[in-house]
Design a protein around this nucleic acid. Sequence first.
DNA 1: CACCCCCGCGCG
DNA 2: AAAGCGCGCGGGGGTG
Length: 558
Amino acid sequence: MEILVCADGDRVQLCELAAELTPETTRTCTRSELPLVMAEYESASPRWVWADTAALAPELIAAGVRVTRCLDLRLARTILRHAAPDQDWPDLGWRTEPLATTTPDPAVPTLWDESATTPPGNTVADLVAERIRQRDAVGACSEPARMRLLLAAESAGALIAAEIEADGLPWDRSVHEALLTEVLGPRPRAGVRPARLEGLAAQIRKHLAAPALNPDSPVELLRSLRRAGLDLTTTSKWEIARLDHPVVGPLLEYKKLARLLSANGWAWLDSWIHPASTPQRRDRFRPDYVPGGVVTGRWATSGGGALQLPKQIRAAVRADPGWRLVVADAAQIEPRVLAAMSGDTALATAGQAGDLYVGLVEAGIVGTRAEAKVAMLGALYGATTGEAGLLMPRLMRAYPRATGVVEQAARTGEHGGTVRTWLGRTSPPPPPSWHERQAAASQPEATDAVERRARQGARDWGRFTRNFVVQGTAAEWALCWMGEIRRRLAGYGPLSERPHLVFFLHDEVIVHAPQSHAEQVADEIRASAAEAGRLLFGRTPVEFPLDVAIVENYAEAE
DNA sequence: CACCCCCGCGCG
DNA sequence: AAAGCGCGCGGGGGTG
């Protein structure tokens, strides 16, 4: 059963859809009544169909309602529009941009007020029409069943993102603050450098004989470094690390600490760490995930930087007392996904050693694990030079099917074509400027420089499409993995004692679980990985092993 | 002051 | 200048 939810201001309409998507009974309630009304229906596990999970789920979750499944028409539309660009997709006025980082002040009028108060595509009839349009678009896909799985997984992801934001990642503020004070010195007044940074800045100025230098300014820093006789073109740390000069040590240290201060310092703590709801719990970091925010299907974030949480501060991620963090990451997910989608049994076999890179060494393809990794990443990213470029031919000889898939994707992209992930997410076409550049190169009067730029542009786009098929399919696997984890954990009793997802990082999850359930949860996560493989690829020799750690704080999981 | 781009670096 | 993909974020520095 599907139930459409159409929210317009304070009025909500619920409409059951029959098998052929014909609207049947419609029920109206207020927004505040919605969670209770939905809870009534939820025992029958309907599929809730709505325009935008992110707009509706937070208030449902706050009211204690966690639905089993939904279809997010906005996310589905984005995928289907690219899959079926020739179909008619009338403008519904739906946001395609990520949510704003901060809640806008309603007193301040904005350009979007008009569209925000009267969304044009948000009547029951609009939603029903869109649901039918999407069903037809799915039917026209070359692999409708895969597309249906993708839309279900994407929608489950939207629910998970909303739940993670509501539940939050348990955070120990005092651990974080102690770490900041230890390496930076005591918290200074706003706008003042912490003592340790100021000390390093003084050393840098002395070594470079530049008394007024602001080391935060790359322009000033580069000028001072060059004036000191150092041959540099940028101030990046890998270039500085090569120099032989007394300034190197303090400068690299300064950069590291300045980064910590600006990205995850006291200001970040103040704006992103929310106080505990009860004394028995820790504080919470509430990441603002944006499902489908990356073209490949990966999640993005909007504020908070959850996808860049540095290893340096992971000790501050601490389970509540009596609870544990079950940290799981998928080992070499991209090559494994490539093995599965290409049907490369030789690569699948290499992955059965546990560590796929070790498997490559044991198969005699390369000499060391490090070489295996460089070669494989080179194949996935399109390396042409350096060590990866040299190792590539061996990989292509050993795994022609797997490498053939990414090579073919690259050729398609170089010619301006689009490629698809395993479940059917389509890459964006190159922009008009790309075509203009190609066209310019085919003119008879085209100069060498014009031709070179066109060739460069073609190769660049080829590397993008090459990586798209693998990164995108890995993202699909991860969505299915998480969806399955969520489904299994839903049976673990009342919300307050239930293990729940608290973090996601492309190929890694953290589940916050009562200590007594941690081992069992680890098993559920492993079983979910295997299930994700089956959901996507059916029977496949490819294994999807995980590294799982049950820890008190995230840093222990390394 | 708001806005935008670049740089550099964090993550996978 | 990270050889080779995808991102977000903060600070500097320029522009209107």
